[in-house]
Nucleic acid binder design. Structure first.
Lengths: 233, 233
DNA sequence: CCAAAAGTGTTATCGCTACACCCATGA
DNA sequence: TCATGGGTGTAGCGATAACACTTTTGG
């Protein structure tokens, strides 16, 4: 993909810096959290920012997003989805930069905690989100909005939980998302009636009685979807 | 926004061509239609394409989208929404180009027909969509999908109809969108019960009996939304 | 007067919501 | 034994879906 081709086909067109930002959600201790970085380049060095970086000419947007997330968390194959392109002329005071935002959901665990801290990144819970640089607060608001909408129609909540999780945990996740308490019986009835959760034999013993573990069964879920099923919480 | 700033803050970063494409929907004679152009530049000159163009460094993505649509249709203040950024490395064989797609809804009438034809653009109905260049068929599929989802929760269908429309027309629009016949009585009951359609005194006399005109009342709609109302067809 | 499209209500079913008590266990 | 959180069923209500006939009027 050289300059020759470029000049041949699209002469006199101006190129622009393209970045990606990744809005990364995690769920831990009943709290929804966002992964933030202290920016270490100018302009706005030292301020809080959503992780991001520039897109190289030889990589796709999604590849760039994965590269950035992998650098930060050490994880591959994250659940990642494109959100929106931010393109106001003056959004970045350093230059004309268009940024494509992705949001990602990760299962927080010890390994990711370590990797994240090595990069001086932090999990911040939603009640404590500081002022962010540029239009990053908008990005975060949009991402949260999107996550809420999405979680209602697709079982993406499972990307935020470990492989094995309990129904009370799953319920707490939805309660954190919607900032609203849900009825235990109705929640269980609905989620179990969908038929894509497998009950396991062992229990999470962090409570007295212990709660049974469940596992998301993607095969069953896909079957249902292909039969015209619509997940809705 | 000069090269100085750029070099100062983000040296050694590669710039990329950024385009926008506009997926324009119209509704005419009971049919959902898409606005397509025969491309007149290389590569792929002469092939069908979704209207688009490059983003200038001194305009936002949305401004670029409006400029392109205005050139084509002569219309300003169209309903326009960003869809997705397409960023595969080889999506455009002419160069590395990232394209941000918007979709737009327009009220087709004589004026727009004239303007569209002057630009050698065409309204193509969905059953007749040809092969498009690059990833433009994907763009179209995504846009249609998005329109369908959106129309179920927001009254955006009204952007496709004239100011005054009849209930049978509105119903035909939804039937075209969902490729499914709807029950007249249930449709009317539901849409009227929402309370944001004003019945007018005159009728559309293109049928024997004639159907009363209605008008979308945005004030009432916004009131309802602010009271936590949720439109759903 | 007839063809064609507009307009109008009722009933059965399903899904959602609200609600209270027993169970298992570690301390 | 008791405090804590896990687990279970039912009844009422509102929304949706199915369904057929009358009205208007131009030709």
């Amino acid at each position: 993909m050289g300059e020759d081709k470029l000049h041949k086909y699209y002469p006199h067109t101006e190129k622009i810096l393209v970045a990606v930002n990744c809005i990364v959600f995690g769920f831990e201790a009943g709290q929804l959290k966002l992964l933030l970085l202290k920016r270490n380049i100018e302009p706005a060095s030292g301020k809080w920012a959503i992780p991001g970086g520039f897109v190289n000419v030889d990589e796709s947007l999604k590849t760039a997003g994965r590269r950035i997330l992998n650098d930060l968390t050490g994880l591959e194959d994250l659940y990642m989805e494109q959100l929106h392109a931010y393109g106001d002329v003056d959004r970045d005071p350093g230059a004309r930069v268009i940024s494509v935002a992705f949001y990602a959901l990760i299962k927080v665990n010890e390994y990711t905690h370590q990797s994240v801290e090595e990069h001086d990144a932090h999990w911040i819970q939603f009640s404590d989100i500081p002022d962010l640089i540029f239009d990053h607060n908008d990005m975060m608001d949009n991402a949260l909005q999107h996550l809420r909408t999405r979680a209602r129609y697709q079982p993406i909540g499972f990307h935020l939980l470990p492989e094995k999780f309990t129904l009370p945990e799953l319920q707490k996740l939805y309660e954190a998302l919607y900032q609203k308490e849900l009825d235990k019986r109705n929640f269980r009835k609905k989620i179990l009636s969908m038929g894509f959760l497998d009950k396991l034999d062992d229990k999470d013993k962090s409570s007295r009685r212990g709660a049974f573990y469940y596992r998301f069964n993607k095969v069953k879920y896909d079957e249902l979807v292909s039969k015209g099923f619509n997940f809705e919480v």
